[in-house]
Amino acid sequence: MIKQFFRWTGLVILLFILQTTAVPLIAIFGITPDLLILVLFFIGFKTDVIPAVFAGFFLGLAQDFYSPQILGQTALAKTIAGYFAGLCNEKVMRIDPIFQLVLLLLMFIIHDAVFFAVQMAKTSTPIQAVGLEIISSTLPRALYTLFFALIPAFREYLFPSSGRR
């Protein structure tokens, strides 16, 4: 349990550093993959709701801390996204990799919907702008991230870890 905690924590810190330093270098037309949502999805998928909720909360808080946005905005969005990921964990339901990717896409939409809802409430952003943002930013970002999600998803598909199943 403790070993798993440290393993996930290490992975989260590593991906957080990558997200803030290296990921902007691989941006395509300003769209970058969101490795933090990806790791949050896998935390929820592999562990449970509670670790995913807290991981989402602290990851979001860290992102709020390092980016000049509304404090708590990303924390709330990632908390709810983490809860969603935790609900679909592999102990509860067995999901094939393709459906995992669909869930990840859904998680992105939930995350950004909460994120923009807070933004609308705090800064009076019109709903049309939010819709446009979801189409022009969320979907491309989600698709770009899915590409990275294929790596662990297909590794599991091709080489299933028999010990856990």
Binding site: V49, G72, A75, L76, T79, Y83, K122
Partner: peptide, 30 residues
């Protein structure tokens, strides 16, 4: 599970609605 979600969401909402001075204090604390 639901309580952990409520707790973290509540803290997030408190941070979102907090005045800038309290947000700055929270940032300092973090």
């Amino acid at each position: 599970r639901v309580f952990s979600l409520l707790l973290t969401s509540l803290v997030s909402l408190l941070l979102i609605t907090a005045p800038p001075v309290k947000q700055a204090a929270a940032l300092r604390f973090l």
